Computed example of a mutant assay.
Amino acid sequence: MSRRNAKGRGINGIVLLDKDTGLSSNAALQKVKRLFFAKKAGHTGALDPLASGILPICLGQATKVAGFLLNDNKRYFVRGQLGQTTNTLDCEGEITATKNFEQLSKTQVMEAALSFQGNIEQVPPMYSALKKDGQPLYKLARQGIEIERKARSVTLHKLDFLGYENGVISLEVSCSKGTYIRSLIADIGDKLGCGAHVIELRRTGFAHIDITQAIKFADLEALAGDDFERLDANIFKSEDLLPNVHNVAIDQQQGIDIRYGRKIKVENQADNLVKMFDENAVFLGIGQIENGYLQPKRLFV
């Protein structure tokens, strides 16, 4: 069977793509899937087309851990333009209001930005993938429909003020899952009384991953070959990208039970989400310990 007619390769693991601006997360996913000739692929933590930076692409069985990757903290570099509000909260939208910002000092802008560090309540933007009755909010927004969104608790673990010049504020943000950087910039603009929107956004970190570990699609293309050897060297093991999930080793009989979906008794283990490894140190998947029993949640075998 030729490569063209085959259904794809059964490869497993995660590619840390450094997504370019102007490309949707799904478009980036499809390009990587085709390049690696993978049977199955999915992404975690979608990035707006405007945004660049780390986009983990899960191949094969690694798609089973996508949801767990989403729970990790993220880091961003962002630049926001004061004085203009847009309907999308970024520079791709239509300007809805313009106000003066020239009277603001660098100190005022810095103090307003840093006031958001810590635990805050944030209203998700209409232009987001959140759903209302099964319909993504961005699709409703494109129809001119706006619905009430409840504020959600998020945490800005660290907010570094990098500078302010000619109405443009630059920040580095380390935040919890579910944080919208576009909403943060808009809220800073509201606090300053002039409005603001994002003009540049780059995801520079994901859990323990740094942007230096990610690779551009053009660089992946340059490694493509018939044997896939150089391409596959850029695939990370799923278990290596979940450093905050505790490891649990199980014996041969327990491994059999887990593979059949049965829960097993474990000693001296706190209730927690865990990575399961068999007697040969083979990664079996994700499990959940509750009341002294380990129950499989996502199996790789």
Results as ranks from 00 to 15, higher is better:
residue 292 G to Y: 00
residue 222 A to P: 06
residue 167 G to S: 13
residue 106 K to I: 14
residue 150 K to F: 02
residue 114 L to A: 10
residue 72 D to L: 14
residue 86 T to A: 04
residue 10 G to V: 07
residue 154 V to G: 06
residue 88 T to I: 11
residue 235 I to R: 04
residue 148 E to A: 09
residue 190 D to M: 09
residue 9 R to A: 09
residue 225 G to E: 13
residue 75 R to C: 10
residue 18 D to W: 13
residue 209 I to K: 06
residue 141 A to L: 10
residue 108 Q to N: 14
residue 243 P to R: 15
residue 160 D to I: 07
residue 54 I to Y: 00
residue 104 L to N: 05
residue 197 H to W: 12
residue 144 G to M: 04
residue 6 A to D: 11
residue 120 I to E: 10
residue 252 Q to N: 13
residue 70 L to Y: 00
residue 215 I to G: 09
residue 35 L to C: 10
residue 123 V to P: 01
residue 72 D to H: 08
residue 260 Y to N: 15
residue 33 K to R: 15
residue 4 R to H: 11
residue 156 L to G: 03
residue 91 C to L: 09
residue 19 K to H: 11
residue 243 P to T: 15
residue 69 L to H: 05
residue 122 Q to A: 08
residue 295 Q to C: 01
residue 238 S to E: 06
residue 278 D to P: 10
residue 25 S to F: 10
residue 108 Q to A: 11
residue 99 K to N: 11
residue 148 E to H: 12
residue 31 K to M: 14
residue 294 L to H: 02
residue 214 A to D: 09
residue 176 S to I: 08
residue 288 Q to V: 11
residue 100 N to D: 13
residue 257 D to C: 14
residue 236 F to Y: 13
residue 49 P to M: 07
residue 61 Q to F: 00
residue 22 G to Q: 12
residue 274 V to G: 08
residue 237 K to A: 14
residue 141 A to D: 03
residue 172 E to G: 03
